[in-house]
Design a protein around this nucleic acid. Sequence first.
DNA 1: AGCCAGGACGGAA
DNA 2: TTCCGTCATGGC
Length: 261
Amino acid sequence: MQRLKADHLDLAQIAASGQCFRMTAEGKGFVIHAGDRRVSALQKDDILELDCRKEDLSFWRSYFDLETDYGQFIAAIDPADEYLQKAASFGSGIRILRQDLWEMIVTFLISQQNNLPRIRRCIENLCSRYGEDRGGWRAFPEPEALADLPEDALMPCNLGYRSKYVVRSARQAASGEVDLEAIKEMSYPRVREELQKLFGVGGKVADCICLFALHHLDAFPVDTHIRQVFDAQYPAGFPFERYRGFAGVLQQYIFYYDLKG
DNA sequence: AGCCAGGACGGAA
DNA sequence: TTCCGTCATGGC
């Protein structure tokens, strides 16, 4: 059992915030799958207890982004912006996780024109059918495990028309046509363009990948929920300039508040 | 029952 | 460029 100091962290909020679809409640805590890793986590006040080896601790500290002070983001919110204040207060336990790149690509390919419960089931189906067996659980399938399939092979996993997006993107990743390792070193504007070479990845999905895998906090995915909030709360436009460098964090507060608030 | 969901693609205008 | 029909499926 390892312990980490963790303020502004609420696993239940993160699990419900729609950035991670492989966190499930287990007893009083959560079990979290990330790529080919897995950990059990339990929160006690501002201490996060992780069931992992000491040498894996640095990975999970980074995964939960525990070295970042989220209080500074909340403190920087315009005091006159009542809506954003409430949203941030409501979701103050949300952090932007550093998730696996390929897993986020597939997850948000599947997310389009879809709803959160079904996205979760699609991911589970993919892992159980094509993920490597780790003895009692399965890893997220690598591109190579999907690249040789026919384009409609994932429809039994309930991906619907998105099956061909995942299969063709897997081919592009496996062949090196899109270099996932090189992408990790690119600036946000450049990687956003690069990701859109993947079949099925447009601007919004690219922003989700940038934010939830690559931790580009400037990325601000605008989906149907955010669009509705903008129409209702920010008719004159959202003040992106004020929040340069961390607008993506606020996006998650808004998304979660609109979803659950 | 019917509308909507963390959109993107391909073709038309 | 912008606009629009289409794409599977199920949650509510």
